[in-house]
Design a protein around this nucleic acid. Structure first.
Lengths: 129, 129
DNA sequence: CTTGACCTTCCCCTGCACTGGAAGGTCCAG
DNA sequence: CTGGACCTTCCAGTGCAGGGGAAGGTCAAG
């Protein structure tokens, strides 16, 4: 299978697949005599795994780590569990930060709606901020 | 006031202030005869405004728009209100996406804890993903 | 007179995950 | 044999908000 077909089957682009190879997410592809990359059908599953990892919010570098462990013949379970736990903690923190930001902005927005603040003071940039 | 002092007073770095000038957030500074930038004390307030805008999650480009309007002699209130409203909507969406991602990951993590999945299947990369 | 702190411009680098485009090679149908 | 679809490598850029560091000018203290 050539790179274009693989890309289509895996729902991505040829450009991205070359990038993945460069980043070590895909092993260097076999080549036809004329130099075209030639992929085994199973490669689709590997790309799907990359996509699932991305859907879980992992970076390509983290996904690469998992694949490296697996390619080394080991089970990456513990590592993956740690990564997922770390992501969970990060996400909770991000949500908390965004919630705080939302409250801040909502407060600014509210203050601005007060009737006694109808005029903009000329010596400040903006009464909203 | 020279750039180093201004940076310290405003809680930032000289490098960043030159960057802000380049980006149009600060007007081109006055220069001493020897070419040093020379700032009026009020400049601190402008930089503080930039920081408040950032704290509200606005990009430098958006903050620049506000400053441009104000520098043009108009009140940027409506524009700022629209920006804040847009930010609020964005934040809500980001929170919702993160919450969904959190649930996804927590689900994966949970599945992995099931006792009947103790062994990693050798034909998949990882049972967690 | 020299040292050291400060300033100037200039260009490149960071992280993340790609994307665009140029110049050229290959393959198959008509 | 020609056209077009596909492939190759390599270089460069995207967005965001700066940071690093070189090469050189300026200023006040000792």
């Amino acid at each position: 299978m050539r790179i274009g077909e693989l890309a289509e089957r895996a729902g991505t682009t040829a450009k991205t697949l070359r990038f993945y190879e460069e980043q070590g997410l895909l092993p260097p592809a076999e080549r036809t005599p004329s130099g075209y990359r030639d992929y085994a059908p199973e490669t689709v599953a590997r790309i799907d795994f990359v996509h699932r990892g991305q859907a879980a919010g992992l970076t390509l570098a983290q996904i690469r780590q998992i694949l490296d462990i697996r390619d080394g013949g080991h089970a990456p379970c513990e590592h993956v569990r740690d990564l997922l736990d770390a992501r969970l903690a990060e996400i909770e923190q991000q949500i908390a930060q965004l919630a705080a930001l939302r409250d801040t902005i909502a407060g600014l927005r509210n203050d601005a709606a007060k009737p006694d603040l109808d005029s903009c003071s000329p010596d400040q940039v903006c009464r909203y901020l």
